[in-house]
Design a binder for these strands. Structure first.
Lengths: 109, 109
DNA sequence: CCAAACTACTTGATCAGACGTAGTACGTCA
DNA sequence: TGACGTACTACGTCTGATCAAGTAGTTTGG
């Protein structure tokens, strides 16, 4: 399991990726991340929900209430154009970070 | 310039790498990191010094006063065996993180 | 049929760590 | 002498991840 400290800084990236193709809601996002992470990482609920609220405040996503025929009401989040650009920027920053940190990683013997 | 939020989590790794070959001191470590980062990232003094103190407290490094013929006294830090293992662990975690986050990064069009 | 598990979220408090600001201290060089 | 480079230290602030706990509806197994 990868520690959260290592993912810190990329929480937004993971969440935004889950919204690229279609709007989604908290629980589904967390399940998607869990699945893509193949059991190596699990985002805590509070981390996720605080992230989507932060993203909404910054204009990267908008929220709307899902029409729920059954089950508890869901709050869906949709990526805005600004959010898509934000995601692309994060991806680019990630690539740069990989190159940078890579220079500090040596093979262990 | 890569934002510090993206490096957060790898600060210890960068610092430890600078101590792999020989003991070093704060200022020299920061210069080394700056150089290896090729201008893409600069670790703030406060971040660096709080990191070495944290590492010392956890037993990853030990400190000693350098014999200074000139200039202000320097505090040198030497990697312990535990620190070396800690570094290797961090590197391994880094590789896993790269693989993990990579699955969330899509090519921008 | 009831309890447990799963879905779906919220609130509030706490904590680590990165940062800004500022200051101390010593040396060299113009 | 005063600017600049070296070499730190102290203190306060802020963000963001976490823990703990609770609320609430749905589904499923014994």
């Amino acid at each position: 399991m990868i520690s959260a400290d290592f993912i810190r800084g990329y929480v937004d990236l993971l969440v935004l990726e889950s919204l690229l193709d279609e709007p989604s809601y908290g629980y589904a996002i967390s399940k998607r991340i869990e699945q893509l992470a193949q059991g190596q990482y699990e985002m805590k609920e509070t981390t996720l929900y605080s992230a989507v609220r932060r993203l909404e405040k910054s204009g990267a996503v908008t929220s709307f209430q899902g029409t729920h025929t059954q089950g508890r009401a869901r709050t869906y989040y949709r990526l805005t154009d600004a959010g898509r650009r934000f995601y692309d920027e994060k991806c680019e920053e990630w690539r740069q970070t990989v190159a940078l940190v890579g220079r500090f990683v040596r093979d262990s013997r």
